[in-house]
């Protein structure tokens, strides 16, 4: 399963090549811990579901008492704008960041806003090619953008099998969709779908009177509430979380492939709490934290030691669309303006 994930990544990949320079590598030493405790705070900007982010923060605070994690959760694209505004105004509030749009790290690295900080565990056990060997970012999490439906409102036999199925007239007015101007997951998915299915797909989808929400965490909630019976995009992990609560929702991995969305993390160059930032950053890649992300957060992990819970379809059995953050970085304006043209918001 890992092999498949890595192969998928490596194909589109950014960080192929040498990992010779071990300069940025650091480990969690007693000195780092002490220095981090002295700072006492770490400001974590993230686009993960707010509950999952707070769970991770609480686990870290328990592991390293005396260091408070301040979670600032926003959609990845909103967060990207905020960080842009803050850094251009020389406001260095964010210490460490996680985004569901990997292209942000291409941009921030180019702007010189990231610190080179590669946790030893990442360099040692994470698949080569999954992280930036220069240490500016590493894949804290992955998830898919999936189709899902409300099992009380749609019998399994009627459920869509593919993205194309959703263009059928019977789904008119029944689809909920998140927004690429807000969500990094959806921006990434929009890029992959427009590349693999063509923009004409979105043009036709827009004619289906989709309900437009913002975050990729929201479509699963709308499906569970019965507001719309099916979602065309949204987080796989939120669907897992809803299922665990017993909600009537089922995933469909589209026959065309499901967009794979990697969520890298990085440490900011002008972090006010550089040590706490590094400690927290390194900890999130530990087997312990990754297991929490998988078990409590429903996420997928690159850590070879992390175990997927039973019942989730392994990634190797799912047809995936390819990630390509470098192209996303280049096409972001085009993506947003096309989307605006078809969906009006």
């Amino acid at each position: 399963m890992k092999a498949r994930l890595i192969a998928t990544l490596a194909a589109g990949l950014v960080y192929a090549g040498t990992a010779a320079a071990q300069g940025p590598v650091y480990s969690i030493t007693p000195e780092l811990e002490a220095a981090a405790k002295k700072e006492g705070n770490v400001v974590y900007y993230t686009s993960i579901d707010v509950k999952v982010a707070e769970d991770l923060a609480k686990a870290f605070e328990k592991r390293y008492p005396g260091i408070k994690v301040h979670v600032e959760r926003n959609g990845a694209e909103r967060q990207f704008s905020k960080i842009g505004q803050e850094y251009s105004s020389k406001i260095y509030n964010v210490d460490t960041v996680n985004s569901s749009d990997a292209s942000h790290f291409v941009y921030w690295k180019r702007e010189g806003w990231l610190a080179a900080a590669l946790p030893e565990e990442v360099a040692k056990v994470y698949p080569k090619g999954s992280y930036d060997p220069e240490g500016y970012s590493a894949p804290m999490r992955a998830s898919l953008s999936v189709i899902a439906y409300n099992t009380k409102l749609v019998p399994a036999s009627e459920a869509p099998k593919s993205f194309k199925d959703l263009l059928d007239a019977k789904w008119k007015g029944k689809i909920v969709k998140a927004h690429p101007g807000y969500s990094g997951t959806i921006l990434t998915a929009t890029f992959q779908m427009s590349r693999d299915l063509g923009w004409s797909y979105f043009e036709k989808l827009a004619a289906q009177q989709v309900m437009q929400v913002q975050s990729s965490t929201e479509p699963p909630r709308k499906v569970v509430a019965g507001e719309r019976p099916v979602m065309v995009d949204g987080n796989e992990y939120n669907v897992f979380l809803e299922q665990r609560k017993g909600a009537p929702i089922e995933i469909v991995y589209a026959t065309e492939g499901s967009p794979l969305v990697v969520g890298p993390s990085g440490v900011m160059k002008f972090a006010k709490n550089p040590n706490a930032a590094r400690l927290f950053h390194a900890w999130t890649f530990s087997q312990e934290a990754q297991q929490i992300a998988i078990d409590d957060g429903g996420l997928r992990s690159f850590h070879p030691g992390a175990k997927e819970p039973a019942g989730r379809k392994p990634l190797k059995d799912i047809k995936l669309m390819k990630e390509d953050p470098v192209s996303v970085d280049k096409q972001v304006e085009e993506l947003k303006s096309r989307y605006l043209r078809y969906f009006k918001t």
């Binding site: 694209e77 101007g181 972001v332 969906f343």
Partner: peptide
Amino acid sequence: GFHTVTTKIYSLFQFP
């Protein structure tokens, strides 16, 4: 699926 001037102004501050 529609904007008003205020929501549009806000969206014009999103990236880019």
